Simulated scan of single mutants.
Amino acid sequence: MKVLLVKMSSLGDVFHALPAVQDAFQQVPNIEFHWLVEEAFADIPNWHPAVKKVIPIAWRRWRKNLSSAAVRAEMKAFYQDLRSTEYDIVLDAQCLIKSAVVTRLAKGPRYGLDKTSCREPLAAMAYQFPQSVAKGQHAIPRVRQLLSQVLNYTIPDTFSYGIDKSRWQRPEMGGDYEGEYWLFLHGTTWDTKLWPESYWIDLAKLVVDSGRKVILPWGSGEEKSRAERIARNIDGVEVLPKMGLNALNAYLAHAQAVVGVDTGLSHVVAALEVPSVAIYGATDAVLTGVLGPKVEVLSSDLGCAPCLSKQCTHPDRNDGNPAQPPCYRSISSRRVFAAVLGKLG
Rank of each mutant, 00 (worst) to 15 (best):
K2L: 07
M8K: 08
V14S: 02
F15C: 02
A17S: 14
A17F: 02
L18P: 01
Q22I: 00
Q22M: 03
D23A: 01
A24Q: 05
F25S: 05
Q26V: 06
I31Y: 02
H34D: 07
L36F: 02
V37L: 11
V37T: 08
E38R: 00
H48Y: 12
A58G: 13
A58H: 12
R63I: 15
K64V: 11
A70Y: 07
V71I: 15
M75F: 06
K76A: 09
K76F: 08
A77P: 01
A77M: 10
F78W: 11
Y79T: 11
Y79P: 00
C95D: 06
C95S: 14
I97V: 15
V101G: 03
R110N: 11
K115N: 14
C118E: 04
E120R: 09
E120V: 13
A126Q: 07
V133L: 10
A134Y: 11
K135Y: 04
G136R: 13
G136L: 13
A139I: 12
Q145E: 14
Y153E: 05
D157Y: 08
T158Y: 08
Y161K: 07
D164K: 05
R170F: 01
E172M: 10
E172Q: 13
G174M: 11
G175K: 09
D176A: 14
G179H: 04
E180L: 10
E180I: 05
Y181V: 04
Y181W: 14
Y181I: 06
W182N: 00
W182V: 09
H186W: 01
W190Q: 09
D191C: 05
L194V: 10
L194D: 03
P196R: 06
I201L: 14
L203K: 03
L203F: 11
V207L: 09
G211Y: 10
R212W: 03
P217M: 13
W218V: 03
S220W: 11
E222S: 13
R232N: 14
R232L: 14
I234C: 09
V239K: 02
G244R: 02
A250L: 01
V258E: 00
D262R: 05
G264S: 07
L265F: 07
S266E: 00
V268C: 06
L272P: 00
I279K: 02
Y280L: 09
G281S: 08
A282N: 07
A282C: 06
T283Y: 05
L287Y: 15
D301N: 13
C304I: 12
Q311V: 15
Q311G: 05
C312F: 01
N318E: 15
P325N: 10
C327D: 13
I331N: 01
S332W: 07
R334V: 14
V340L: 11
L341Q: 15
G342A: 15
L344S: 05
